[in-house]
């Protein structure tokens, strides 16, 4: 088989644009997912039964459904909810934020539960409300304890964003796929993007390892 790598440099502009979308989708979904996931985690741990039941239902639904189905599902349903077409890219932003929140919720829940009860008592005894205890005492410590897990999940998320090509969105993989078919360079393109995904994921996970040893709170 004859491989033709010469088209890769020519494709670099298109790949770069796709890459930018992949990164911004990852960043947005991670940020929104962590915020939403933290709220869900607080709800799950709440003593108010309906609240914790809703939160755990949310988590169970998204953790038990294949992502690709959820991507299609939201793409179909979202326009009905907001009353107008939404487009593949915006649909992807919303879908990933909501889907990832379920996973980030479980990480934050573990983080919150890792904080000794005495920390809450100490805050309460000084007159902190539940919200102040969470904001100043529990969440900062919980968050630091799970930063490596949050980053690891974000790396998985980055790889999973390649699934948005099913909507025809032009993320890194989507861009590569389109060019590959146009130029008939399937193998070359797929190898190239695989290398890009690998390099980024690999170095991020090295970073996670490095952070892990630096950031843990000494007790």
């Amino acid at each position: 088989m004859q491989l033709d790598w010469s088209s890769i440099p020519r494709a670099s502009n298109a790949l770069w644009e796709g890459f930018q979308f992949s990164i911004s989708l990852t960043a947005f979904a991670a940020l929104a997912g962590i915020i939403l996931g933290t709220l869900l985690a607080m709800a799950r741990l709440s003593s108010i039964k309906p609240l914790s039941m809703i939160a755990s239902g949310y988590v169970n639904i998204f953790r038990s459904t294949p992502l690709v189905i959820v991507i299609y599902w939201f793409y179909v349903v979202l326009p009905f909810i907001i009353g107008r077409p939404i487009g593949a890219e915006h649909s992807a932003y919303v879908t990933f934020a909501i889907f990832e929140a379920a996973y980030f919720c479980e990480i934050m829940r573990a983080g919150i539960q890792s904080i000794p009860k005495g920390q809450v008592y100490a805050g309460s005894a000084l007159g902190f409300t539940y919200g102040q205890n969470m904001r100043y005492i529990i969440l900062p410590q919980a968050f630091r304890n799970v930063v490596p897990l949050l980053l690891t999940q974000t790396i998985i998320l980055f790889q999973d964003t390649s699934l948005v090509y099913v909507l025809g969105a032009t993320d890194l993989f989507g861009a590569a796929d389109k060019i590959a078919h146009r130029d008939n360079t399937l193998l070359e393109m797929y190898v190239t993007v695989a290398v890009i995904y690998f390099v980024i994921s690999f170095f991020l996970s090295r970073l996670v390892k490095h952070l892990h040893s630096k950031i843990a709170i000494i007790r």
Binding site: P116, G118, A122, S124, G127, I137, Q141, R219
Partner: peptide
């Protein structure tokens, strides 16, 4: 109760300082 607790100091057996 929060206002009242603010007026009552509590020292624990295991200190419970905030490690962060």
């Amino acid at each position: 109760i929060n206002a009242l607790r603010a007026d009552v100091g509590f020292v624990f057996q295991h200190f419970n300082l905030y490690p962060h």
